[in-house]
């Protein structure tokens, strides 16, 4: 079973993704902050990270940078309400960029694609 980390400061988003993706057969762990995310990544093995950009204390881009420095092979999907970050070259190091939507299918398909790789 593939293990996913969902990083988002919104409780309901974390819950939605956890419930949805668990039912898709993934083991889902969540983090509400950058520190928590980096701690989890250091403690347990992960197959993929779904990372929000606008976090409360820092930006997801900082987390992305650290994850990619420490675990270059770990796929990261940036998941944001903002589509404008797509043009920020800092986001280009991520493996995918999916804009938040009530339709979770595109995110699910992207995860499936990256986890397979």
């Amino acid at each position: 079973m593939h293990r996913l980390l969902i990083v988002d400061d919104e409780d309901h988003i974390r819950k939605l993704y956890k419930d949805y993706l668990s039912r898709e057969g993934y083991e889902v762990v969540t983090a509400a902050s950058a520190d928590e995310a980096l701690k989890i990544a250091a403690e347990i093995g992960l197959d993929l990270v779904v990372l929000d950009i606008e976090l409360e204390e820092t930006t997801g881009l900082e987390v992305l940078k650290k994850i990619k420095e420490q675990y270059p092979a770990l796929p990261v999907i940036l998941n944001s309400a903002y589509s404008t970050y797509k043009s920020d070259f800092h986001t280009w190091v991520a493996d995918a960029y999916v804009v938040k939507s009530s339709d979770i299918v595109p995110l699910k398909e992207k995860i499936k694609e990256l986890v397979k790789v």
Binding site: H12, L16, Y20, R23, E54, A81, K100, S102, I104
Partner: peptide, 21 residues
């Protein structure tokens, strides 16, 4: 708009989840 997008994602997402359940 960005503030609204998260609630909409949650509402629609859970509705989708319930429907698929």
């Amino acid at each position: 708009a960005h503030e609204l997008r998260n609630p909409l994602t949650v509402i629609g997402g859970f509705a989708n989840l319930m429907l698929s359940s």
